[in-house]
Amino acid sequence: MSHEAREKLTAVVSGRLLAGWEIVSVVISALLAEWVVLSFFGRSRWLVVVPIALGLGLMLASHRAYGETAKDLGFRFDNLPAALRILFVPTITVIVVMLLLTWLSGNSLSFRPSRSKLLFLPFWALFQQYALQGYINRRAQVIFGRGFASVLLVALLFALLHLPNPVLTGLTFVGGLLWAAVYQRYPNLLALAFSHSIAAFFASFFMPPSVLNGLRVGFKYFG
């Protein structure tokens, strides 16, 4: 192997290692927030800004290092219609299956609106999609390239962050697969956030709290 080829290989391998380290680091920040801070300091919830700020700081620094623009990440309108079109059928299908399974399992469907949650939902969905696709998906593609492996990794990590809530873990795994695959084809975070908001709206406002255990994750799931 020539010196030039060896240097190129080293750069690729170290680039993959770095991307893997970045993913692990951001996932740790999220796990710290939900399993440690929110679980043990319910009253001092503001402490959660520390791991979130650390994770967010890393993501912003990383975008700068990779030379990624907001448009690259998916904050754009040019591919919005195409992304919404491709998301429409799967999103509706997931919602129908979700509600059907709830109904078939003997649980009643009832609408329980909450204005504050309703207003908060799109922003929370956009933030999650930004972290999941605009950051983790892009770094997963550095490791595995475009395709099933990187999509699966994104879905697994998204599901991991919703443990130990079994229903939510399953739903986020399915959602993660769908959104990661669509992002790789049409990188548009606004469309993904819209799909995410609609799915979360039906899950949190129509499905009974006993099924989703109040959307609790981390230690809080246990009470």
């Binding site: 680039g15 920040s29 890393l58």
Partner: peptide, 17 residues
């Protein structure tokens, strides 16, 4: 150089966490 900066940030973040 950007990768080195990123590595330093990752180490600092680990220490802070």
């Amino acid at each position: 150089e950007a990768a080195n900066t990123l590595v330093r940030i990752l180490i600092a973040k680990s220490v802070a966490e």
